[in-house]
Design a binder for these strands. Structure first.
Lengths: 150, 150
DNA sequence: GAAAAGAAGTTAGTATACTAACTATATCTA
DNA sequence: TAGATATAGTTAGTATACTAACTTCTTTTC
């Protein structure tokens, strides 16, 4: 039982690392990192839903993507520098900013989506639909267990 | 299909990150990082097998743990600084060093093992033996697919 | 046996993940 | 309404993951 668990921890870490590395290689073609893509993807989803401006604050993005504030602060800084997102003042909170995707980014989004999908597809190339569902379900439960441990 | 794949990528990354964070918290009690523990664990396993001295070179450890040379170089440097490992000259290759666990580290190993096992156990607390085997198997296949993509 | 190619490890740089501490602003409490 | 507490975001520091380039040494080639 314990041997299996140790192997599980190692395989989880290794598979996530390999997946991230492959995705990094793909996104690098368009000058994005994996984390930058995750932020872009999150903003796209929220813009599609048309939610309140508070959803576009750095702290909200950080919460949704399970990131630390200094981490999201740095990522946003670099996305602003690259012109991939734009920053607007919050209507009532002077501390906060509202972040939006730039036109340039919206234009390239389908391409990034494609690159991302290719990576995951390559990882499960020989999986059945049921196996993919199973893996997703098991990972979700694991995530839930770990979050409850906090 | 594509939605499920996107969710899979996200869950894989998230679960690995949560697992690593929990392990980090545990190992921090003994002033180890997750990567340092992985290196220690790898050396312990090899010392147990009593293999050739080449197995204890930095490049060999890097290969076994799927790490880059600069990365392993930095980790080993910090482990040496902490006194957790010791460095000896290679018998024939002046470029290389042989790395061994210090007595201090060997003493604390059972404790680190326990902390590590606790983390993984917490993640699969409500899993059956079969589910753990299944998850391990699916992750292994995913890893294999991604490595073949290189 | 000398030159070319390859390998072990390090350095420099960028991006991130995290803790701790900070500034400025908002909210809560007595 | 003033002081206490909390929050949004940033800075500083450490550790890591990666690319590129470097030094030193070993192996291969002609």
């Amino acid at each position: 039982m314990m041997d299996n668990c140790t192997n599980l921890g190692y395989l989880l870490t290794l598979s996530a690392k390999l997946m991230k590395y492959h995705l990094m290689k793909q996104l690098d073609q368009e000058n994005f990192t994996v984390q930058q893509w995750a932020v872009i993807k999150d903003l796209e989803r929220l813009e599609g839903l048309g939610g309140a401006e508070n959803n576009f604050m750095a702290v909200s993005i950080a919460n949704r993507l399970d990131m630390d504030k200094p981490t999201i602060s740095g990522i946003i800084k670099r996305l602003l520098e690259k012109g991939y997102i734009e920053k607007y003042p919050h209507s009532t909170d002077k501390r906060a900013s509202i972040l939006k995707l730039s036109a340039q980014t919206k234009e390239i989004l389908p391409r990034l989506e494609e690159l991302s999908d290719q990576t995951v597809s390559a990882a499960v190339v020989d999986f059945t639909e049921e196996e993919i569902s199973q893996l997703t379900h098991l990972l979700f439960r694991m995530t839930k267990n770990l979050k409850e441990e906090e």
